[in-house]
Design a protein around this nucleic acid. Structure first.
Length: 288
DNA sequence: AATCAACACAACCGCCGGGGC
DNA sequence: GGCCCCGGCGGTTGTGTTGAT
């Protein structure tokens, strides 16, 4: 059946169309989007009208929707490219195999493959407790690795890649203390996991750590890196939305980006300082 | 100046859940 | 309960811009 095809306009919006849309919203409010077309006001789908309003035209527009999505999307793509390009052609000795993980051994995670500060820290931790940060150790819950604390964050934060391939931080001592005190400020691990998984790529099971990737990992040495999670002592819950990403005051800045140099630093360097300003804080677990 | 790669941005598409009939 | 419509969201695509070569 050859129904009469109404012409549906696509592509960039004209100023006249915006005007019509705005007038419609003024009259009827931001709803009944499909009626805009049925009334013959615009040859746009209701979805298209809604999207235009939400993303561009509405008053007090907070650019936290499409822009943020695009931001993370581009970051993700760039990081994927960085990691891919930095992988050696074949490096079986530096990849993590399932069998090795079952044995608690992780070839390629030899400590000498990691930045010097990580090596130092891990050496020191191995002397301290059963919660060793040995890069080759495996515990029950996280089948890949623990790594990368800073000297002044020892016993407070460890980075994990867990079995779901999400990276997250566990605040060992902090959580313990809060639990002991039955304190509502106890960090929600799931919140941290969500937040952090936005920052980092999900590591692959066979992730390799070539020199380029090591550079990326080395970024965790940056004392400001963990600032995105806010001060541990103050408000552990989802500090990431309360505090803008901070750049180091000195050093490790940044020529990366569109020059194709594929410097892993570039991934972290262009986070807009106010990017989380307009995101509302999530309720604390106690409010759930 | 021309070309190219990478990026930013705008918009569309597909899927899903909720609500009304 | 099933269907349909609508709105929301995540993923993707298309296009313009920018900076390097």
């Amino acid at each position: 059946m050859e129904a009469k095809r109404e012409e549906i306009r696509k592509g960039p919006w004209k100023a006249e169309e915006d005007e019509v849309l705005i007038n419609h919203v003024k009259k009827y409010g931001p709803r009944d989007w499909s009626s805009i077309r049925s009334k013959g006001l615009l040859q746009r789908t209701g979805k298209s009208c809604r999207l235009r309003w939400v993303n561009k035209l509405r008053p007090n527009l907070k650019k936290t929707d499409n822009d943020v999505k695009n931001f993370w999307s581009s970051r993700q793509k760039r990081l994927a490219r960085i990691l891919q390009n930095s992988n050696p052609p074949s490096s079986s000795s530096s990849s993590i195999s399932k069998s090795h993980k079952m044995n608690g051994e992780v070839p390629g995670f030899e400590i000498e493959n990691f930045p010097s500060q990580v090596q130092k820290y891990c050496s020191s931790m191995e002397d301290k407790s059963s919660q060793s940060c040995s890069l080759s150790s495996i515990d029950n819950n996280y089948d890949i690795i623990k790594m990368v604390p800073l000297p002044d964050l020892v016993n407070s934060k460890l980075l994990h890649f867990d079995t779901t391939n999400y990276a997250h931080i566990e605040e060992l001592d902090q959580r313990e203390n809060y639990d002991n005190n039955n304190n509502n400020q106890c960090t929600s691990e799931s919140q941290l996991q969500i937040s952090f998984s936005h920052v980092l790529p999900q590591p692959q099971q066979d992730m390799t750590f070539s020199p380029g990737s090591q550079e990326l990992l080395a970024r965790f040495e940056d004392p400001y890196f963990f600032d995105v999670f806010g001060p541990v002592d103050d408000a552990p819950e989802l500090a990431v939305v309360e505090q803008p990403f901070l750049k180091p005051a000195t050093g490790c800045c940044c020529d990366g980006g569109r020059d194709g140099s594929e410097n892993p630093d570039a991934f972290f360097d262009d986070f807009p300082a106010d990017m989380f300003d307009q995101i509302e804080s999530l309720p604390s677990p106690s409010d759930w």
